[in-house]
Each structure stands twice: as C-alpha cells, then as structure tokens.
Design a protein around this nucleic acid. Sequence first.
DNA 1: CGAAATGGGTCAGTATTGTTGACTTAAAAT
DNA 2: ATTTTAAGTCAACAATACTGACCCATTTCG
Lengths: 179, 179
Amino acid sequence: MTGMLKDKTRFVPPPKLPPPTPVVDLSDAEMRIAQDLLFFAYRDFTNVADQVLDELGLGRAHHRALHFIGRNPGITVSSLLAVLRITKQSLARVLNQLVDEGFVGQAPGFEDRRLRLLTLTDKGAALERRLFDAQRNRISKAYSGAGPLGVQGFHAVMRGIMDQGARDYMDGTGSAEDT
Amino acid sequence: MTGMLKDKTRFVPPPKLPPPTPVVDLSDAEMRIAQDLLFFAYRDFTNVADQVLDELGLGRAHHRALHFIGRNPGITVSSLLAVLRITKQSLARVLNQLVDEGFVGQAPGFEDRRLRLLTLTDKGAALERRLFDAQRNRISKAYSGAGPLGVQGFHAVMRGIMDQGARDYMDGTGSAEDT
DNA sequence: CGAAATGGGTCAGTATTGTTGACTTAAAAT
DNA sequence: ATTTTAAGTCAACAATACTGACCCATTTCG
C-alpha cells in the first residue's frame, strides 16, 4: 500500500549541486553511498537487540558494556572506559546497574588491588548470548550473501574507517587505552 | 608510552565460554569480530564530523537531517521521518533550528500544498559539504586500501545487514516510508 | 618513609536526543 | 459536508552523554 506513493517521496535534484570539488580520485557519489550504508547498517544492526533489552529495562549502553566485558574477561574499568570512549560517570550508571542485577561480577586485581576486574556472571553471559544471537542472524545472512571474498573486503574497509587505536585493539596489540 | 602496559589491559578468556550453539556454518568468533567492526567504524566515522558541529552548536541529529535533505532535495517531512525513524517531535526540534538558522529552506508542494518540501539553502549545502569532506577522507582512504573488489564486498555485506526497506530506499525503489 | 600518582567511586548539574500522548490547523479526498 | 492526511505544537519524561569537583585506597617514586 505504501509503495503506491513512490512519486511523492523521491525527488529529482533541482539545480542545486555546486561544482563538486574534485579533490581526490574517488567520486563523491560513491562516498555518499558509503554514508548511507553506514547509517542504515548500524541502525538496523543495533535495533535487533533492542527488543530483548527493553524487556529487561536495559539500554544499548548496557549491551555495549556486556559485549566488551564478555570479549575481554577481567578487563579493568579504565580499559573499558577507553574502549567505549565515554566518561567514568556515564559508565558508572550502567555498570552499577549491571553489577546490582547480577549480570557482571568483579574481583580485585591480584598484584594491584586497586583494580576492579570485570567479568560476566553466568546470568550476564546468558543475556549477552541472547543479544548476540539476535544480531548474529543479520551478520550471518549478510556474510553468506557476500561470500568469503566479500567478507574480506568488508573487513578491510571497516578497519580502514576506524581509528588506528581501534585497529590495534582488534589486533590484540596496543593497550585498550589507545582505542 | 601507553603501549607498555599491554599486559594489564588484555586478558586470556577464563573457562567461561559455554558450548557455542553451532547453529549455522559461520563461526561465532567471526561474528564477534563483525560486532567490533561495526562499533568502531561507526563510532569513529561519526566522530570526525563532531568538531565542526560543536563549533556551530549543532549535534549529530542535525547532521543526519542535513545529509538526507541534501541527498533528497524536496523531501517531505514525513518521508524524512520515515528515513530517520524518529518521531515528529524529535525531528521538529532539530529541523526548526536548521530552518531558523538558515540551513534548510522549505516550499509548499505544488499539487498538494499541505506538503513542506525541504531543501538545503546555500548555507546549508556549504555546511553539509564541510561535514561530508571530513568523513570523505576516512572513506576514501579505506576504499583505496581495500581496492575495488573490497569495496564491492563492503557494499554487499552492509546491504545484507540492513532492513529490506533500507535497501529499497538506497536502490531508489520503494517509498521512503518503508525505510 | 612520606609525597605524589593512579585506579576507582561519587555528587551535582546540564545538554542532546529520543519517547508518548493529546490536540490544532489547513488542505485533500470521499 | 465529513473524513483523512500532512504537519505543527505543548507538555512531560527517559536514556545517555557531558563537566567539574571531590574522596578514598593503593601503589610508586624520590
């Protein structure tokens, strides 16, 4: 039904476009498409977890924390802060809630007892798993459709877009602080 | 200097991982990496525009509106709402500000005068251009590094992740309402 | 040892961006 | 003439982020 209004919702660009500064070799149009791709893919990817999160009264910030703690068991608070690039206060709210509700456990560091080493509890791991499964379907389908070579390209481009610190983090080199 | 603390910030996964439900052919590890890629690439991609936006007292929501109006000159308010997937009230704040400050112009529809057709003013186009240029560097470098085939793969995977409606929108078929 | 640095926690206040719900106006459509 | 539709608006609320200013315990360093 909504498909019938096509003509009302798309428009031919009026004589707006100024001479697009031809700086580099890659066309603007190509870059614009990349913007759209990032917006929609990220939007829909994150959205698939939201329903589960809503049920539990949690938000995306909680998911992010769960994800990075799950992937880096024993991570310190400051490392987590560096990876997420948010402030201590922002993380505190989310993290305290996760600890209070039994999703995240903590233990003092062995040599340095100032450290709070974070891990997922079984309950936390189960939740993270649930959230992950929802997103996995998306990725899985997309990967199948693109083939192994496509996935390689996806990796290369995404890595190219992120900061060097993030690449280092993903490679396991470099401290999380540089993320 | 920060690189010296490596041992403090990465941890070997304790015996946590439960038997990873082997539903599909694609490994969990691969999927986890995809999560990281999306998080970091999106984070850093959006961040590059923030400095410019801060100068002008604008936020990311304004950027998104500018982007989609720029790419669809004459778009209606309801189409823009559908693309952004936010509520009328959320958009109103952002859009009114953009109109007030002369970044966005409006004109009533020709046949249907209820419609508010949105376009970028010269000032708006200039700003959008500035924001775009910052992000273009990222994409441009990433694309060069990945090569044409890599870019193809990137496209395929990103399209696979997003909702069908978003794919339709990008293809120019389907109303923006289905986004 | 004593001072400084570090990891972490907390209080208070603010901004951005999103939400729901209810209601109005003007223009189309039936 | 009535009903739909596109859009705008008011009010209240929630999530997530931020800044700035502190405090405490532990570790490190001169």
